[in-house]
Simulated scan of single mutants.
Amino acid sequence: MLEKQRHQLLLEILEEQQFASVADLTAQLNSSEATIRRDLIKLSKEGRLEKIRGGAQRIGNRPAGAPKTHLAGSAFLVNKDKMTTAKQAIAAKAVSLCEEGELVIVNGGSSTFMMGEYLTQRDVSVLTNSYYLAQYLCENGQNQVTVPSGEIYRKQGIILSPFENDSIQNYRCRLMFTGTAGIGEFGVMETDSLIVRAEQKLRRQSEKLVVLADGSKLGQKSNFVIYPLTEVDILITDDTADPRVIEQIEAAGVEVITVELEALAA
Rank of each mutant, 00 (worst) to 15 (best):
V259W: 13
Q205E: 15
L49Q: 01
D242F: 02
P148H: 00
Q248I: 04
R204H: 10
G215P: 09
T84N: 03
E190D: 11
L11A: 02
E250P: 13
V147M: 15
D242I: 06
M115Q: 13
N140Q: 15
I36L: 02
E207C: 00
S130E: 13
Q200L: 13
L202D: 03
I195R: 00
K201W: 08
Y136S: 12
K51N: 12
S222H: 09
T112F: 12
S110Y: 04
K208Q: 10
V196C: 14
L49A: 12
A94S: 07
A94W: 03
Y227P: 00
L9S: 09
V95F: 11
S161G: 00
A266D: 13
Y136N: 08
L137R: 00
I246G: 04
A265I: 09
K82P: 05
P63D: 02
R172H: 01
Q220S: 05
V126G: 08
I257D: 00
A72W: 04
E12N: 05
P67Q: 06
L160A: 01
G179C: 02
D39V: 02
V254K: 07
G219S: 02
V95R: 13
K68G: 04
L119S: 07
I236Q: 01
T69N: 01
I183E: 06
I90D: 06
V147T: 13
N30Q: 06
I236H: 12
A64G: 15
L40I: 01
E117R: 13
